[in-house]
Amino acid sequence: MGKQMTEMLKGTLEGIVLAILAVGAAHGAEITARLRERGFTDIAEGTVYALLVRIEQKGLVDVEKVPSEKGPPRKVYSLSAQGRDYLDEFWTSWNFLTNQLTDLKTDAHERGH
């Protein structure tokens, strides 16, 4: 993944993880696996865990400790009501940005650039 993609992901990874949790509750390793299944192969598990701490502190997720067969209980994350609102706002912003970028690309293409 190039530097430009890494920088773009910094601003959107929260929304991407919340979108993954909107599909279903998961623990950190499952979230990382789901990201990788979707092509986000360069995102480190540590990055995901740091992000989970931040979104938990913001109240965007509910956390349930579930017993683990190996080691301490696992934290399972699910979208909170506040997280759903945040995700709705994320998609609104995302749609605006993608529409504007598509228009800019079309304009540049039509001008031969």
Rank of each mutant, 00 (worst) to 15 (best):
K3Y: 12
M5Q: 15
T6P: 07
T6H: 15
E7P: 07
E7C: 07
T12L: 10
I16E: 00
L18A: 03
L18P: 03
A19R: 03
L21G: 01
A22H: 04
G24I: 02
A25M: 03
H27I: 06
G28T: 05
A29Y: 12
T32Q: 10
T32M: 07
R36K: 08
R38I: 05
R38F: 07
R38M: 06
T41I: 14
D42K: 12
G46Q: 07
V48I: 04
L51H: 03
R54F: 09
I55G: 02
K58Q: 11
K58H: 11
K58T: 08
V61D: 04
D62A: 07
V66E: 05
S68M: 05
E69L: 14
E69T: 11
G71Y: 02
G71K: 01
P73F: 04
K75R: 09
L79T: 00
S80I: 02
S80E: 02
A81Q: 09
A81F: 08
Q82K: 15
D85G: 10
D88L: 11
T92N: 12
N95Y: 12
N95M: 12
L97G: 08
L97K: 12
L97D: 11
L97I: 14
T98E: 13
T98Y: 11
Q100M: 13
T102Y: 13
T102H: 13
D103P: 06
D103K: 14
D103Y: 10
D103W: 11
L104R: 14
L104N: 13
T106A: 14
D107H: 13
A108H: 13
A108M: 15
E110M: 13
R111V: 12
R111M: 15
G112H: 11
G112A: 10
